[in-house]
Computed example of a mutant assay.
Amino acid sequence: MSLDRPIAPDPYELLPTVGAFTLTSADVANGEPMDAAYAHGSVGGENVSPQLAWADFPAETKGFVVTCFDPDAPTGSGFWHWVLVNLPATTTELPRGVAEGELGGAFSVRNDYGQQGYGGAAPPAGDRPHRYVFAVHALDVEKLDVSPDASPAYVGFNLAFHTVARAVIRPTYQVKE
């Protein structure tokens, strides 16, 4: 049951250009299928966030935001799987399955599942592979002025004004019919 629609643009191609830095993961890779561990329970996954590590970000970085977005979701606006805000500038890695209490005051706003925290991949069964855009945003402020009930779009609006550099990994996930 492949949904017949054009491939959506990468969301960061539509925003003003910012600097880049290095993002790596022991768990996910650019253009490669993700393990079911990182998929949502609704499709038989474990709903575990992947390990992410970053380096070579600008010296003026004061904080970070980590996001995961599926631009291929059949919604007209994509699907936000994770928006983790207000990570301290001293944070350079998230372990696999990170618990928010371990993050020095950082927190997740609600994802498009309506929950705080990471929500794994869950594309429609039989659809083409979806891209999952994991991004780490280096900020020129220590914290965004948002609360846990903020929408991902509102966080994204704030990121547009405070992101000095961005690092991205784009793995894929597909649920076979």
Rank of each mutant, 00 (worst) to 15 (best):
D140T: 11
P74W: 02
R110D: 00
D140R: 15
R110S: 10
V141H: 11
Y154C: 00
D4L: 08
G44Q: 07
K143H: 14
R5S: 13
E102N: 14
T75N: 13
L139Q: 10
G19T: 10
G19V: 08
G97Y: 01
V168N: 11
T90A: 15
G119A: 13
F157G: 13
R96H: 07
S42Y: 03
K62A: 15
A135C: 11
V85R: 03
T172G: 01
A138P: 10
S151I: 04
V109E: 03
T22P: 04
L159H: 03
L103M: 03
P71S: 05
L103Y: 01
H40A: 10
A160C: 10
H81K: 08
D72G: 05
R166E: 04
P152I: 01
Q116A: 14
A89V: 12
L84N: 06
R166D: 01
V85K: 01
Q174I: 00
L139M: 10
W54A: 12
M1H: 13
P88I: 00
A150P: 10
T92W: 07
T163F: 01
H81Q: 11
A29N: 02
Y38H: 15
W82S: 04
G97I: 02
A99T: 07
C68S: 10
H40L: 06
P148A: 09
G119W: 03
V43F: 08
G120I: 00
K143N: 14
L84W: 00
Y12S: 05
L103E: 01
D127A: 00
P95S: 10
T92P: 08
E93Y: 02
L52G: 09
R128T: 04
V66M: 06
V146C: 08
W54H: 06
V18A: 13
T172D: 05
W82H: 11
A8L: 09
A55L: 12
T75R: 12
E32Q: 15
F64T: 07
